[in-house]
């Protein structure tokens, strides 16, 4: 089943060969949502400012390329490293408070970074965006082309590797401990688990992967604008998790695909009012499918099993 899922990019490539930029964007959004899911869905830290790390990664990768280092893979690693460091430092601020304070602190951090990027126009290009990002070919062979072939495969492979890493993390003892913390932090503390250290670790890792997603966007579009830090990025990742289902590794990917495809389809039909229909769709989803698409899928599987069991009896 899972192998089938990860083979999907191949037929998609052939079937939608002219829509690759959209598919690339879905892969990037999926990675961003996955990184938020580690923080929100597994560790239970609510965040309204995850775009801070996405944006840091994007600017890191973008600035490296502008200033003469256009090698994509090292650029991506640098983006991840910078975001990881920022995530580690800010985690202490974020984890001090309760849920409501965390919302505000994460929001504040992303707003501060946004304002800083706006002010530092000599470095970031300010509201005009960072112009002149030129990427070298990957491994010196695959050039970023107009059809977006390279950007597509590059993003899908990065998403896959990150996915494998993140899944290993959530299935490790550390991941289980995180779920314990989310379920009942007092009890976890009582049995002697280092709750705070776990949370710091989760937040830092989540920030790092968000940075990689941001770097990926900068490299694939060869442009960075202030929007990478904007509130709507953070909100979008949350929406994706609501649609796909949080606390499940495939939730982010399904959600990202559903969200972007829906957005593209609706805005094609009605460029002016698509947001209304998207909102209406979301409300229906929240009312009738609590656990998102993953929740629907699980309910379906459960029902199938039950009928099979009943037939067996």
């Amino acid at each position: 089943m899972e192998i089938l899922f990860w083979l999907l990019p191949i037929p998609l490539f052939f079937l939608f060969g002219l829509r690759l930029p959209l598919l690339t964007e879905i892969a990037i959004l999926a990675l961003f949502a996955l990184s938020l899911d580690l923080i929100l869905g597994y560790a239970g830290i609510v965040s309204l400012g995850h775009a801070a790390f996405f944006g840091l990664g994007a600017y890191t990768a973008g600035l490296l390329a502008v200033h003469g280092w256009g090698e994509p893979i090292t650029g991506l690693l640098a983006a991840g490293a910078v975001a990881t460091a920022a995530g580690f430092v800010s985690s202490f601020l974020v984890l001090r408070g309760s849920d409501l304070t965390r919302l505000m602190v994460t929001l504040a951090i992303s707003m501060m970074l946004l304002e800083a990027a706006n002010r530092l126009a000599w470095l970031t290009g300010g509201a005009d965006g960072l112009y002149g990002v030129t990427m070298w070919p990957i491994f010196g062979i695959f050039e970023f082309d107009l059809y977006g072939h390279t950007a597509y495969w590059y993003s899908v492979i990065v998403l896959f590797i990150s996915f494998v890493a993140l899944r290993a993390i959530v299935n490790s003892p550390f991941g289980l401990a995180l779920r314990g913390v989310k379920g009942n932090p007092l009890r976890m503390r009582a049995i002697g688990a280092p709750v705070n250290r776990h949370l710091v670790k989760a937040f830092t890792i989540g920030a790092g992967f968000a940075g990689i997603a941001g770097g990926l966007l900068a490299q694939a579009t060869q442009f960075v604008s202030l929007d990478v830090l904007a509130f709507h990025r953070s909100a979008e990742a949350l929406l994706v998790l609501v649609i796909g289902g949080s606390g499940a590794v495939y939730g982010g990917i399904l959600g990202a695909a559903a969200f972007r495809v829906l957005q593209e389809w609706l805005s094609g039909i009605t460029p002016q009012y698509w947001q209304f229909w998207l909102g209406a769709g979301l409300i229906v989803l929240v009312l009738f499918a609590r656990g998102g698409l993953i929740g629907l899928w699980r309910a379906l599987v459960r029902r199938l099993h039950r009928t099979r069991d009943e037939e067996a009896r």
Partner: peptide, 19 residues
């Protein structure tokens, strides 16, 4: 096409319009 005033969207949409 609507880009919502977001630069990377504009670029992607233009790219798709062309290819």
């Amino acid at each position: 096409k609507d880009d919502g005033g977001v630069a990377d969207q504009t670029k992607r949409i233009a790219q798709e319009l062309v290819v």
